[in-house]
Amino acid sequence: MQPKRHRAPGDGGNLRFAVLALVRDRPEGKHGYRLKPECEALTDEFWQLNYGRLYRVLDVLERSGELTVVEEIQTQRPNRKIYRITERGQRSLDDWLLQPVSDQSGPLRDELALKILFAKGEARARLYKTIQEQRSIYFKRLSQIGRRQKRLKEAGLDGRITDLVMEGAEQRVRTDLEWLDHVERRILHGALD
């Protein structure tokens, strides 16, 4: 397994770079309250955004000198924070963008594959049900990807790029579903008995 270069404890993993990129896209500065919905649009029900985590990431980025923050004094409302990316932040974002993806998936990362591999006795008899449950999860995931795409567009991200990202996500679920159908056919036809 490859070492995860960018995942020092507490640094927020990929969220850190998503935040940097969202701030970078606004040279005039990004309001903190805008970051919430935009980061949220990047996540889905399977990877829920924890706001505490978002604030910790902002805090870490400020302390490491990758972002600067200016507080805008408001009379009627609570003060607003405006974030800007620094040269150092720009460099670390560029580095990350150029690194190969560290989140390598392999057969042993897939929980369902593991269960099929190790199912015996009662668990094997229940496999058909497990497959149906998994299929249901995949369909729901596809439906969520569709809704997420809408939210990303509403958050003002470039539609052509979000389409490509979402198509990648859909393609993976599609492949998972096809494999599931294949496994089911084999089980129903007794190839695993």
């Binding site: 995949y138 369909f139 439906s143 569709g146 859909e170 599609r174």
Partner: peptide, 11 residues
């Protein structure tokens, strides 16, 4: 196509 099927309320 499962992607298109999920435009609906139910599959």
């Amino acid at each position: 196509d499962p992607v298109f099927a999920t435009y609906g309320d139910k599959v």
